[in-house]
Amino acid sequence: MKFWETLYAIDRRVLYAILIVLAAWQVLKPITVPNVVLPMSQSMFDKVNTLKEGSLVLVESDWTTSTGGESRGQFKALVRHLIRRRVKFIITSIDPLAPGIARIHVEEVLKEEPTDVARYAHGTDWAVAGYFPNAENHVLSMVTNVAKTLGTKGITDMPIMKGIKDLSDFEAVILVTGSSSINVWYERIRGKAPVGLMCTAVMAGENIPYYASGQLFGMVIGAKGAFDYEDLLNTAYPDEKFVNYQSGRRYMSPLFFALVLLIVSVIVGNVAMVVLRKRGVQQ
């Protein structure tokens, strides 16, 4: 009886300690985890892969360090892909901290890419438009008058803005987000540009129906999605001069062990509960 009672009421700090040990071990010595790319990740990659050289994409980067574990890998893989395809991109955000973080990570990617690929100038090939408060107003103004909206951010005179009159001048809008900012795009995009989503795992359940209904052309979900995208990049750009794998693959094995711990804990706790209930022990 004592055994089952102990299992039923394991101190949460013991579980935290096991989690810390497992995560630390796998961060330092990660094992290779096999991967099967999800169709929705493949759709996102395929869309970006078909964009013509010189075309323009709007990247709405609404993530900060709080979701960096998932969003950083997604964002860097996307930027890597856009740069290799010579697709131009403008970054906007509804989070005051996000534009600075996006800029830092684009610069990181440019340093990691081979020198012949990384000739990407700010203002000509990419630009950070900055922070726009209030998601509703931001998206509405982007849909109704994108040139004027982006013009408030001092990037009007940059070459990348040449010829932009309407949101339909963008080949795609891709959100990298850890918040519900995507909802406003569903509501206000009015079919002006196809929308893709890179989101945290916790947002997956809510947003997969939008992928199924065709409102999203692709979805990259959590660290698994980042791993998918890195895998796809590695298949498309196998040359050793390219850096394809980063946090997406690196975080998979610690995540695998953490999820095993979670599943084992749930099973053990429930079995102990059933056993104690059958024996009439008050819980």
Partner: peptide, 16 residues
């Protein structure tokens, strides 16, 4: 389940 995945990755990122 997906909430736990997000929280785990946040922790793994900090551990890294």
């Amino acid at each position: 389940g997906t909430t736990m995945m997000t929280r785990f990755v946040l922790f793994i990122d900090r551990a890294y």
